[in-house]
Amino acid sequence: GVTLFVALYDYEARTEDDLSFHKGEKFQILNSSEGDWWEARSLTTGETGYIPSNYVAPVDS
């Protein structure tokens, strides 16, 4: 299955590639091989962008 991640904090995008999000928003991670910045798709907005990996945690299934 796909592991979903949930935002622990609000984040405001600093570049066009970043994804702004709110605490509690859920994400599907598309690429986590880039280190501290993961490519993710928000399940709330459907938008794709980079998120700071230390702002999210796995959702307990």
Results as ranks from 00 to 15, higher is better:
33 S>T: 12
36 D>I: 07
33 S>F: 08
61 S>R: 09
25 E>R: 01
9 Y>S: 12
61 S>K: 02
43 L>R: 07
16 E>F: 03
20 S>W: 02
37 W>D: 14
2 V>G: 11
25 E>D: 13
47 E>W: 05
44 T>S: 13
37 W>G: 06
30 L>N: 03
49 G>P: 00
61 S>I: 03
24 G>H: 04
12 E>Q: 13
32 S>C: 04
27 F>M: 12
58 P>T: 05
1 G>P: 02
42 S>T: 07
39 E>F: 03
22 H>I: 09
39 E>T: 04
41 R>V: 13
32 S>Q: 10
7 A>E: 00
60 D>W: 02
9 Y>P: 00
25 E>K: 01
59 V>N: 07
59 V>T: 09
49 G>Q: 01
59 V>E: 13
16 E>M: 06
54 N>E: 13
56 V>R: 00
26 K>M: 09
33 S>N: 06
32 S>V: 06
7 A>H: 00
24 G>Y: 02
10 D>F: 02
42 S>W: 00
4 L>W: 11
41 R>L: 09
10 D>M: 02
27 F>C: 01
44 T>C: 05
44 T>Y: 07
32 S>P: 07
8 L>Q: 12
60 D>T: 09
1 G>C: 12
58 P>E: 15
47 E>C: 09
9 Y>L: 14
14 R>V: 11
28 Q>S: 15
18 D>N: 15
48 T>A: 12
9 Y>R: 15
43 L>E: 15
53 S>Y: 14
60 D>K: 10
24 G>W: 02
51 I>P: 00
15 T>C: 02
56 V>A: 03
7 A>T: 03
33 S>C: 07
49 G>I: 00
55 Y>W: 10
43 L>I: 13
18 D>Y: 10
57 A>Y: 07
55 Y>P: 00
12 E>F: 14
40 A>I: 01
46 G>A: 09
52 P>T: 02
52 P>D: 14
52 P>M: 09
15 T>P: 03
33 S>G: 09
57 A>G: 13
24 G>F: 04
39 E>P: 06
55 Y>Q: 13
1 G>E: 15
15 T>W: 06
60 D>I: 05
43 L>S: 11
58 P>Q: 14
4 L>V: 07
10 D>N: 08
46 G>W: 03
1 G>K: 15
6 V>M: 13
51 I>T: 01
31 N>C: 05
58 P>I: 05
42 S>C: 13
29 I>H: 01
34 E>S: 08
16 E>C: 07
40 A>F: 02
17 D>I: 06
4 L>H: 14
19 L>I: 14
